[in-house]
Design a binder for these strands. Sequence first.
DNA 1: GTGAAAGCGCTAACAG
DNA 2: CTGTTAGCGCTTTCAC
Lengths: 365, 365
Amino acid sequence: MTRQAEVAVVTVQDIAREAGLSASSVSAVLSGQHVKRRIPSVTVNRILAATRKLRYVPNVTARSLRAKASGTKQVVLSVLTSYEAPVFLLSQTLHALDRAVAQRGEAAANYLVNVEFFHAGRLSQLSGLADGHRCNGAIITNTIDLDDHFLSSAKLAFPVVLLGRRIPGYPGVSARTEMVGRSAAEILVRAGRRKLGVLQPTVLTQATRSRFAAFVATAEQTVGAPPMIITCEGLSERAGYEAMRRVVALNTVCDGIFALSDGLAIGAYLAIKQSGRIIPDDIAMVGVGDNPASHYIDPPLTAFESAEEAQNEAAAQLLINLVNGAPEENLTVEVPIFPVLRESTGHIHEPSLPQSPAKRSKASK
Amino acid sequence: MTRQAEVAVVTVQDIAREAGLSASSVSAVLSGQHVKRRIPSVTVNRILAATRKLRYVPNVTARSLRAKASGTKQVVLSVLTSYEAPVFLLSQTLHALDRAVAQRGEAAANYLVNVEFFHAGRLSQLSGLADGHRCNGAIITNTIDLDDHFLSSAKLAFPVVLLGRRIPGYPGVSARTEMVGRSAAEILVRAGRRKLGVLQPTVLTQATRSRFAAFVATAEQTVGAPPMIITCEGLSERAGYEAMRRVVALNTVCDGIFALSDGLAIGAYLAIKQSGRIIPDDIAMVGVGDNPASHYIDPPLTAFESAEEAQNEAAAQLLINLVNGAPEENLTVEVPIFPVLRESTGHIHEPSLPQSPAKRSKASK
DNA sequence: GTGAAAGCGCTAACAG
DNA sequence: CTGTTAGCGCTTTCAC
């Protein structure tokens, strides 16, 4: 209904008219066939001139439809994610999808995997959601409430698997995030901390909200006071640093902090150290989120690892099965999520590193 | 020419035949119009059954072509990157592209930005490169030699901007990487280091090779010996850790290391510390690559920052202009690349953090 | 050398 | 309620 600002679209027909020739000649020139078709350079130039003059932009869709012979992929699988999310997990999701596709052997050649981005909160504005003209199936991740709300009332034209969140009616793969917030508080309390704090981004997702709520509730139960809430502008290292710098300037500082994402914790480390405090002696830290740097920073960060690999694997399989006609029963996979205890909470660093995701997944077969 | 394993593709026609109905009825049912068209549920079920039986997967391209009315985007801009590359830079590139599109005002609604992935070395296998049936223009990045070789002899059907590498005949935006290798060696030597080492991935890109070569050459000139070459399996933190762990077990260890990517340096930090050595006292480290964690690790990592923001900005603008008919002269943008000296080479950590990329780019206007 | 015509797969009018 | 028809924009025979 919302009629777009109908920009006049230039087609090969228009160019043909402008140049006083036929569409096929134009097409031949534009696809570099002019030598094969022995079109004289005068004509070629005339066509090229008209093309430029009219500011022609080819319609890839039409080309694609026509190009069946030249190996068009039949099945398009997309990952839909927000611009604002940390991207380091994206590559895992893609790899998982790629592997799932490769498993189909022969048929793999017909699949195409890509990523489309939306601004957090504006998933609904992505085109092709309602009529399925962009993909045959999608993994949707990193949505915020507005997007979730849209999804819960929308009917998408293709199978969808949600990654890292739950919305009734959609197949989804997620981690048990309630456990995270509670467990984070318990770890800090067991490490002897009483003045808890939480580093949280301004915009919460389903997962971060759930972690936050459980952490706050558990803190109130166990130490009898709500945690200090430290708000950060986003999820980046920088955001964590700046928020923490403001906090360490105060007199009363907490002694145990839960960061709703690893990146925030990494940034906070520097602010804490610059203030002359020691981790974990003065402040213990707990993170969450599979940031690859978490193992390696000093001291290594106690963090929850959400078995991303397992989630991605499951989501990819689920999606491919759905696209290939598996019944869309309320398929839901919940993977457990465990803390990896490291020195940032006073635990002794395990000498051997955890297995890499790749190895882990192989071992589980 | 390479005829694919012609998988028989099921169309709505096939379903119609199977169900003994017409294509339009099938289409109506599949697009959820059955209530509007008052199709009895018997018929609906018959169609649905046939659809499942034949394992129908809709052709998104055909839908898209038909869906002109429903807001199909006319101009598709893609970022083509490899699965194997670190993805944290991707989001910047996308943001830049998104901003460049938004600048076009009204017309922005006609643009679609997405990302397509290829396996390093197999760019040539991406479909739609030769006939332009996937996008109207692309930023290509994170290629390895094989891909570059393919590009230099191929003729793509759409405008391309290379990001982070140079290939004759293509517009491109890159940093002056030769400077990096040389400068890295000089920084280490000036910090009093004589036994240099370099952490390098097994697979080199144009940029990493150039950094590597310049570092080796400068090392030979200045300290009279080639650096110790430490090979890592990839670019990850983990790869850096494992490679460095092997090295610290040896008797002779270098005292100044250049890591060809920040991630490798971050991983190496832990191995060095675990061996009881101090950074920078025993080993100085230099990285490169805009990893957001580099500022915040302990000690903060001296690293080259390639003004990614400026590069992305330039590449995005270049691409949009080309797609809109700007003359494809040999447009090449080279941005300088500077070291940020921090404590990992014994420099005093600057009290104020560098400006964030966003601020930096605004300031430069 | 060039144009006319067909058709990729799908959906939306429009007749029945 | 259902089928026929047209056409999205492009490329590719096939005639002329």
